[in-house]
Amino acid sequence: MQDFVYQSAPMRVVFGAGTLRQLPYELSHLGVTSALVLATPRQKDLVAGIREMIGERFAGVFTGAVMHTPVEVTERAMETVRDMRADGLVAIGGGSTTGLGKAIALRTDLPQIVLPTSYSGSEMTPVVGQTSGGIKTTQSSPKILPETVIYDVDLTMTMPPKLSATSGINAIAHAVEALYARDRNPLISLMAEEGIRALAQALPTICAQPNDKTARTGALYGAWLCGICLGAVGMALHHKLCHALGGLFNLPHAETHTVVLPHALAYNAPAAPDAMAQVAAALGEPDPALGLQDLARKLGSPLSLREIGMPESGIDQAADLAVKNPYWNPRPIERAAIRELIARAWRGDAPRLSCAGAGLATST
């Protein structure tokens, strides 16, 4: 067994069905007396219920969160925080709302409670990605990590099947990269394989029967495990590519991860055979890259970057950005091979290894 260092996150997790009702206690536990609720306009009924539930602790609501956490949106939210004298945050939603809460916490160190309605997993991490001038960068700080996450399966029951599918594969991407991370460890690897397995089993049922509560519970459980992986170890090529593509072309976050993941996995396959074996075992497929693309196809998810709005003219620009200040990766980052990867993902081709230099060394 390899040497390793493991540090658990100082976070409180409440998991189950109907757990939203514990929000008043969790606010008291954190000493929050004036909570700003972060939500989206379509969650107005849920916000109304929360307002009634927490009473005088409700300071107000901000509904302007958008993908990729633009800095200008965070600045508008900060004005609301100051105007309402909020001393805590309650973020309801997926990655966009959670990201906004984390961006505010980075600037204020206000305590956060997150109520996820998707499988994004970002609630489990001390990392926030922020976009300015079309470039998305990440930052890590203990202030960013939410203090409490309330996982309520009931909040995911109305998530549309297509969003459930891409959000779930986005979560799987966190676990896949955790299996070949430079700072991986046995506990996180166990969580990663179990998280992939839980989601791969639950997502087809959810797409066929969206009201299946057992499947919804399994998917949320898997997403939680994959989110822990994302927060515990470093990510690699796949996340670098998705950040570059999302920031450059304002592509939808979960769909971008869904399209790119099989291709990034194929790129790294020769340099990470043990991880590939674990992904294959979790999926029940002999070829994990093809297995992931087949899963996306079965779920009716997009298979090409072209489908989700990336222009073909952007392939070279994306390749240039992907090799600039690259993340650590088990296989060296080579521009020609990365360009081929992006081009295949743009077309929606089957994932295929470009063998030049594959697995001969590791980047540092």
Rank of each mutant, 00 (worst) to 15 (best):
A105M: 05
M84W: 08
V153K: 04
M53A: 13
M1H: 15
L36T: 03
L230P: 01
E52Q: 14
A17R: 15
P270I: 04
P326G: 06
W346A: 00
P262Y: 03
A165Q: 05
D83G: 01
R347P: 03
S189L: 10
A65E: 00
P311L: 08
G49Q: 13
S140C: 05
P332T: 13
N329W: 13
A289S: 14
L251K: 11
A215N: 07
A277N: 08
A280K: 08
D154G: 04
Q130W: 00
I172H: 05
I188M: 10
K44G: 02
M124W: 11
L321I: 14
D212P: 08
L203F: 09
T33S: 14
L23I: 02
I342M: 03
Y267S: 11
F62D: 13
A59Q: 07
L261N: 05
A192D: 11
A215L: 04
I169L: 15
K102F: 03
A337S: 13
M124R: 06
L341Q: 02
H174R: 02
P326C: 07
A254L: 02
E75Q: 13
V176W: 06
G218R: 14
A281N: 15
T125D: 05
A208C: 09
E56K: 13
Y221L: 10
Q201L: 15
I206Q: 06
L203M: 10
R42Y: 08
I50C: 12
D152F: 07
V114Y: 11
T19E: 15
N250C: 12
L155F: 06
E285A: 14
E123Q: 09
N185G: 13
N268M: 05
V176Y: 01
F58K: 05
L36C: 08
A103V: 03
P116V: 10
Q130T: 15
F4S: 14
S189T: 03
S304D: 11
A322Q: 05
A289L: 01
T33K: 14
A318P: 04
S164I: 04
D152K: 11
E75N: 09
G18S: 06
V323I: 14
A322G: 03
D83S: 13
Y221W: 15
P24C: 01
H243Y: 03
K136Q: 08
